[in-house]
Design a protein around this nucleic acid. Sequence first.
DNA 1: GTGAAAGCGCTAACAT
DNA 2: ATGTTAGCGCTTTCAC
Lengths: 369, 369
Amino acid sequence: MPVTLADLAKAAGVSISTVSRALSDSDHRVNERTRQSILRLAQDLSYRPNPLARGLRGDRTFTVGVILDNITSPFAPPIVRGIQDELKQASYSLTLTNSDWDSAVEVGSVNTFIAHSVDGIIFVDTWLHAGNEAPPPSEKPYIFVNRLFKGTDYNCIGVDDRYGARLATEHLVRLNHRRIAFINGPDGWEASTSRKAGYQDALTAYGLPFDGALVRRGAWEVRDGYRAAQALMALVDPPTAIFAGNDFMAIGAIYALQDAGQRVPDDVAVVGYDDREAASLVRPALTTVGLPCYEMGRAAARRFLSQSEGQDQPTMAEQVRGRLIVRESCGAMKIRSGEKEFWRRTTPRQLLYEAGRIKGMPRSRSSRR
Amino acid sequence: MPVTLADLAKAAGVSISTVSRALSDSDHRVNERTRQSILRLAQDLSYRPNPLARGLRGDRTFTVGVILDNITSPFAPPIVRGIQDELKQASYSLTLTNSDWDSAVEVGSVNTFIAHSVDGIIFVDTWLHAGNEAPPPSEKPYIFVNRLFKGTDYNCIGVDDRYGARLATEHLVRLNHRRIAFINGPDGWEASTSRKAGYQDALTAYGLPFDGALVRRGAWEVRDGYRAAQALMALVDPPTAIFAGNDFMAIGAIYALQDAGQRVPDDVAVVGYDDREAASLVRPALTTVGLPCYEMGRAAARRFLSQSEGQDQPTMAEQVRGRLIVRESCGAMKIRSGEKEFWRRTTPRQLLYEAGRIKGMPRSRSSRR
DNA sequence: GTGAAAGCGCTAACAT
DNA sequence: ATGTTAGCGCTTTCAC
């Protein structure tokens, strides 16, 4: 049987309310001696306050609800982990539901959470639910990860895809590529719009011309990247580098290139986006932009925490930035010269050899015919 | 403000307890007319019982706690999803913590869960914690997914790895391979032991000799599979097929084979285990044994549910079976002849062409030199 | 500085 | 068949 306040009170020979005050160290002053003895007693009997009773009584349950579309989707777990890591420090619990892109289910989950008196709800995912409507008003903080609403940017934590795409493209430019193709995602995706903008940002920044023929579109799948790359290489003036809007299309592009007898990265360089598990497994290992899922989760939880404490905390949108993960598919090698670091173009074997990474097992042999 | 039993009672002109009885439809008989009017009222005012109050009162909270090592590890999400899908039907909520392979953290989580009066705890993962001890006794059901204890198989839901490994090996045998190598995981892993046993089962079943030289060991990584395959191919009588203990090592083996100028699957066939995301992305796409994570999650939740209801429910170990996922790395093609189905050995191009899967994009060109 | 008591929403004896 | 009451563990007035 768990020990209660009443048990402590009896043991300490004081009233229940004194014990409560001693433990919740409110501003109510309690005799220092009795407080100490109560504290020790609580320790010894390993007292743990009953969160249900606390919650029933009123204000806080120290619980937050997380609604996501599917924990099984590739970006969800690190987001959840980020939320949880941040929350743990404030000793909140986390309860989870999957809504499967069904807004009716989602509403049901919200109601369940409210019934359970959660202190806030974090909505996770990139889908646009329920007709894209703005969130309902509420006193409890609602945080939205990777979600977009029309006409408001209330508490939205997103990715800075424009920045990420620029990073990828700049990497290629610095490796002396001048004709850089872009395989975009489908229309209607915020990610497509932002990533294309980032691609163009980089071109502009380096004074490179924008050539519409170098921009293709695909539905995020391997085969789309494959076809797009085929089309690109059939151009009279084909690109020497391809930036794909996600890793799957990048992998497809690599396969198309290889099937066409091109060496990656020697003949054409490829960059992806997302940093999926397969990125480090394919050959050549894919240079890509890592999505900051974990950081977004933390940011969301931090946002919740701050609004849960202070009243007038900011509720605007926030964008978190990913970083470039350089592997083999662009043939880049890191050079240190004094203070500076930069990437130099090289062949993958050279890269591996100079980096001392070749021993028994050469990881990349895509250059072999 | 949420509506309470008292609100309903006032509106219906009856006492609180009548309302409670009408709604919780216990065996206590309530006048059918009043029950109906109360039900309608509850509907109209959209009454939702307060789970905290219910929980405080005593018996059930309709909440289960899940402790896993890291939601970010590849097998955790489908397990969680399985648990949740099964639990949802019984309208339980799920709360989650990560223990990061730290048994102190784990104990903390258990205590938190108990404080929250969860109705049960599901432990998820394959690690052996806290010195491999048996679980503490408890009236609430504890379920263990993929976890092993010395001397007891209390409520353990595991994978039938022996069966899965046998499946993989048999596939190779039926494709007429006679010298089949096995790249095992490291010592001390239950998975290594079972998978090797399954490998041997298949050999025995088909009267094939066991050759110790064909069994290698690796630490689950790509490079281990790479090295093992190199060693295997250096044998005087090298294998024509390799079964790797997991997908990563299988991928490494494929790379080693390709680097050595062997065609996969034409010259040597490869099977993996796990069905990681990359399995379908590499070339050739990997034939592998899918881990039944989702099913294990469901089984665990079902077990919890049954023990949560009836008292004397079974608490023994349960093994769930995965299935073989045939892709390209063995060059197998499904043949239907009347009632029967079987796999025939073929080249990947042939496989794809006959299956009508080649259109614009040949997926596998590993046979090209 | 401390105790008594009310009440959060609900369920289950116990009455009627 | 229905109402009355106690109490789950806790916080928070309100007295003293």
